[in-house]
Design a binder for these strands. Structure first.
Lengths: 288, 288
DNA sequence: ATAATAGTGTCTTTCAGACAGTATAGT
DNA sequence: ACTATACTGTCTGAAAGACACTATTAT
């Protein structure tokens, strides 16, 4: 006898569940910005974006690097579980976070069906345990455009190169878009991964989210120290956006985003620079 | 003896899982735009935004209206399960969708721990089964702003009134934001719900997502017929954004988004209007 | 003095906002 | 002729882009 959908929903009441349940993890893409080393006493250090990865001690993907995560605890909220995991595993306590996406492909974990509710975390702290910071280098290949009768199809290779103390992890994604009339679809395929699971994809999603949010939020200040120079702020934008900005225009645009302090940098081998802090009242009047 | 985190991960290999698993549903907020009735033969119909809800036949929340959804099938992809559910339950087959958010609050389902991976669906089809279209009226209360030493706190009531054939469902949400230095948090609280579970909140998320995406994508065409007038397009934007737009400016801004056809409306009691279709090549050169 | 960053001024272009004014079918 | 919508033209001001120019420190 077949069980109808309705009966199934009814039965759900009495048994805990007649449906099979998936395992669920929360995964945290922890990002920071840090100064590159510089040898010239005059030159300011450039910034680089980094992601925190841990080396897996057990299968599956033993010895591969992965984003920090844990199976969820049914007695705790999702975000709470993620926070505890990050605190316990890597010693990070206060940070900005937002939910990113829920990954659930059938084959993403070889053991069993595992969903991953992923989060993007931003910090300006450096010393984290049980893992390592990897420099992020995101390189876009050429976009191939194929014209269709009523739309187009694009495809582009994206390389995500993660450089650690003594490893370089090369990853390749293919990003496809298809547009036919109003129908549109886009997918991100993992072509080549040096990381565990589909974690390349999760990191890629986080980087996209961060870049998009830079444009219309003040999210960047979660990656900076409390006090910073405008050049530092500009470099931070540039590194994440992957493009150079014009100084005068940048200062105009960010004027309302920051508050000037009566402090200046010293001993830099060039003109001192005024320090600024985030303006917590930015956009207060514009909240929807 | 306590089991360390590492041992737990190791054990995970051998048992299916030593962790308890949550139930997981996929839920679909189906939205459409439809013409309001009009009596004046000259006047064009206004548009209204609607959401498709089903009446629950069994507990929990028996007789309450809910968004379409189902428990997931471990042998199927999440989106695939959602698509099948929507096809089987409401007879809708081709539609735009995107993942919205994963809701997982401990108490959101009285039976047991249930996560909801929610989706936003857009359609221009009308005849759906096993449920009813509800007119959406989203009313924002006044924003209360409380100034803090290094930031601010805002709070505002939002009313989501859903009007069906013979029911009106009143729902109230409180949207809170807090900003202290770089720390920021925002939460949406369900104050008063006439719907099942936390579905008010899910619908609210979908409406926000739709409104935000209107500004920088061509998502709106998923809600329109293939051919439309510019006034129709403008009305559609206005209904979703909740504000009036200026005609001349609107035509300028949307010029690249549409393609003119050699067809015109007839029998409208006023000057005929040129018909347009979506320009599938809009933004083709700007894809990142 | 020099190198390197810090910071200002301004011309141009682009685009959003506002609004007046013209055009046209159906009754 | 009248009504309601369709569509165009243009003035204004805000903001983005480009770039030249001045200022200031440690060595």
């Amino acid at each position: 006898m077949e069980i109808s959908n309705e009966d199934k929903e009814f039965l759900e009441l009495y048994s805990d569940s007649i449906y099979e349940k998936p395992s669920v993890t929360v995964d945290a893409v922890i990002l920071r910005l840090v100064d590159k080393d510089t040898n010239n006493y005059r030159k300011l250090p450039e910034k680089k974006l980094q992601v925190f990865l841990t080396n897996r001690k057990y299968p599956p993907f033993k010895d591969k690097y992965a984003v920090v995560g844990t199976f969820i605890d049914l007695n705790n909220e999702l975000a709470q579980t993620m926070k505890l995991c990050v605190k316990n595993k890597v010693g990070l306590d206060n940070f900005y976070y937002e939910q990113l996406y829920t990954f659930g492909e059938k084959q993403r974990d070889p053991r069993t069906r595992v969903l991953s509710v992923s989060y993007m975390l931003l910090t300006n702290q450096s010393v984290l345990e049980n893992g390592e910071w990897f420099d992020i280098d995101l390189k876009y290949g050429d976009m191939k455009v194929e014209n269709l009768k009523n739309g187009y199809r694009t495809s582009r290779q994206v390389k995500l190169i993660l450089t650690g103390k003594d490893v370089v992890l090369d990853n390749e994604l293919i990003v496809k878009t298809e547009k036919r009339g109003i129908e549109s679809a886009s997918e991100v395929l993992v072509e080549n991964s040096a990381l565990a699971f589909d974690h390349v994809k999760i990191i890629y999603y986080a980087l996209n989210r961060l870049r998009n949010k830079l444009e219309y939020t003040d999210i960047i200040f979660n990656l900076l120290n409390e006090k910073f120079t405008l050049t530092e702020l500009k470099n931070s934008y540039e590194v994440i956006l992957g493009e150079k900005l014009l100084d005068a225009n940048f200062r105009r645009k960010t004027a309302n985003l920051v508050l000037p302090l009566n402090e200046y940098t010293q001993d830099k081998g060039h003109r001192p620079s005024q320090l600024f802090m985030h303006n917590p009242n930015w956009n207060k009047e514009n909240i929807v």
